[in-house]
């Protein structure tokens, strides 16, 4: 379709990922786990529903991770596999999954960075496996929508942006 590769995220994929993240949240006492695509799109949210604007959050997470990726290269590292942002009450832990998405863990003072890091390791391993399989599965053909979708979307574009 284009030079850029597309992918899809199905209900089975969602169930597998939710199960992995539910277990992680139970073991680590973290509040929420999010999966964000590296292009800046939210893929999944598990745990407490965040009160912030998740679309903006996903876009900034991807930018944060990409910027740090470049910083890593500048100092001679292939990548920073994970990032940690510490706040007074709330903190963030970010980890790369299969080079394609980012796991974001939101946690507060109910747990510690040590416990989160300890538990996240196995979770990253499981997620890597699931996402690698999922992305390979999509490789032969890009996801497509039905023709009616395109017609309806075009009408909606005319309505929203002026016909």
């Amino acid at each position: 379709m284009t030079g850029a590769s597309s992918w899809s995220f199905g209900e089975d994929d969602s169930r597998q990922i939710t199960a992995i993240l539910d277990e992680f949240l139970a073991q680590s006492s973290a509040r929420t786990a999010l999966i964000v695509d590296k292009a800046g799109q939210m893929v999944a949210t598990v745990g407490e529903t965040p009160t912030f604007d998740s679309t903006a959050f996903a876009s900034l997470t991807a930018a944060d991770f990409s910027a740090n990726d470049q910083l890593a290269k500048m100092i001679g590292e292939a990548e920073f596999g994970s990032l940690f942002h510490q706040g007074e009450q709330e903190s963030l832990y970010l980890a790369d999954i299969a080079g394609r998405v980012i796991l974001v863990v939101l946690f507060d003072t109910r747990t510690t960075l040590g416990l989160v890091k300890l538990r996240v390791k196995a979770t990253v391993g499981s997620l890597n496996q699931v996402f690698t399989e999922m992305l390979n599965k999509d490789a032969p053909q890009a996801p497509r929508v039905e023709t009616d979708f395109v017609d309806d979307a075009e009408d909606e574009i005319d309505r929203l942006f002026g016909g």
């Binding site: 597309s6 899809s8 695509d37 893929v43």
Partner: peptide
Amino acid sequence: MSMINYASREINCKL
């Protein structure tokens, strides 16, 4: 790289 999320029924496109 539009992503079609069948689980949350979302399509996001980056311009």
